[in-house]
């Protein structure tokens, strides 16, 4: 048996040691950014501002959750921003104009996202259109549809307000946790939006790590052909991944409508890039096969903390774009450095 032991034992190569490092790095970066802004401005580390940061992260964070799945399969979804808007408009139409019950309107908004994602998935996996092109097309289609639907009421493009249904705004801005938090932190008015983000993140993390869908997401991104040869129906699972991504966009649509108390049909373009940036900063590889939900959430917080901090420092918005862009490039460059070492 001695020979067999020698031959078949696995040499442990510390190849993946630095995977955790990137996540740690991102987290450390978040802490540093936070510390720096706290030092520079007395208005930064206040309860109100922290709530503001959390609130600002919610929508982008939920979008980024869906994008994480897509990117782990080595795909891309450019349509998440405008699909979010379309979902918001659908909720607006059903709840505010048609007067349907709020839960039903929310469901329709979320499902609108699922359907858009499903169509993305079918175009990509059945018609074999590259994800970049398919979702670019969907991005424009959803944008157009959102604008068209917003004209139904008055014949011109205009936002749909939820003023008749005040309960809808409570979805995001209300705080079911406040009574619980009151004894320890009375000033800390944690809006539901943050709760929704964390619940969605937990669900996403569970799906990615513990379910069949998550397993195939990683497998497809790692080696699509090998996955197919293992007897996995790759086309179907890929479709499911895009549908899941769309579902998160739908949820984000409902959230942004609630937060703005209106469905803004012209909104949405550019959101997909923030979401992709969050995913990438969080250490998910664009070449597929690896990525974590925790990383994505950290990435989303890095972006919103930076934006918030720079605004508090009175840095003009134009420069905020520049900084975010440089951070994205830096994050991907670190990822490439890490790969080269392997």
């Amino acid at each position: 048996m001695a020979t067999a032991e020698k031959v078949f034992s696995a040499p442990r190569q510390p190849i993946l040691r630095s995977n955790a490092a990137q996540k740690l790095l991102a987290f450390a970066a978040l802490i540093v950014i936070f510390a720096v802004f706290s030092f520079l401005s007395p208005f930064f580390a206040t309860p109100e501002n922290i709530v503001g940061i959390l609130l600002a992260t919610a929508v982008n964070g939920v979008l980024a959750l869906g994008v994480t799945f897509v990117i782990v399969t080595a795909g891309i979804d450019l349509s998440v921003g405008t699909v979010m808007t379309l979902s918001a408009v659908m909720t607006g139409l059903t709840v505010s104009l048609a007067g349907w019950p709020v839960p039903l309107g929310i469901l329709i908004g979320v499902l609108t996202g699922s359907v858009a994602g499903l169509i993305n998935g079918l175009i990509i996996s059945r018609m074999r259109v590259p994800p970049f092109i398919a979702t670019l097309g969907m991005m424009m289609v959803a944008r157009g549809l959102a604008l068209v639907l917003s004209t139904l009421e008055t014949g011109t493009i205009k936002p749909i307000y939820f003023n008749d249904v005040p309960v809808f705004r409570q979805l995001m801005m209300g705080s079911i946790l406040s009574p619980l938090l009151a004894p320890v932190a009375p000033d800390f008015n944690l809006p539901n939006a943050v709760l929704i983000l964390f619940v969605a993140a937990l669900v996403a993390a569970f799906v990615l790590a513990k379910t069949v869908l998550g397993r195939y997401t990683v497998a497809i991104g790692s080696n699509e052909e090998a996955t197919r040869l293992s007897g996995v129906g790759v086309a179907g699972w890929k479709t499911a991944v895009y549908a899941l991504g769309g579902t998160f966009s739908g949820l984000a649509g409902v959230m942004i409508a609630s937060r703005l108390n209106s469905a803004q049909p012209a909104l949405g373009v550019g959101y997909e890039l923030d979401a992709i940036a969050a995913v990438v900063i969080g250490g998910t590889s664009l070449s597929g096969g690896q990525g974590t939900i925790l990383g994505t959430i950290i990435g989303a917080f890095i972006i919103s903390t930076l934006t918030n901090g720079l605004r508090i420092m009175n840095v003009p918005q134009e420069w905020q774009f520049v900084v975010t862009g440089l951070i994205v490039i830096l994050a991907v460059y670190l990822d490439i450095l890490r790969r080269r070492r392997m």
Partner: peptide, 20 residues
């Protein structure tokens, strides 16, 4: 070779027919 590098050996062996 047709293994998925990002999965464990057991995950590779059972990919496509995982017990649930």
């Amino acid at each position: 070779l047709n293994l998925m590098n990002h999965l464990t050996l057991a995950q590779n062996v059972f990919v496509g027919r995982e017990p649930r």
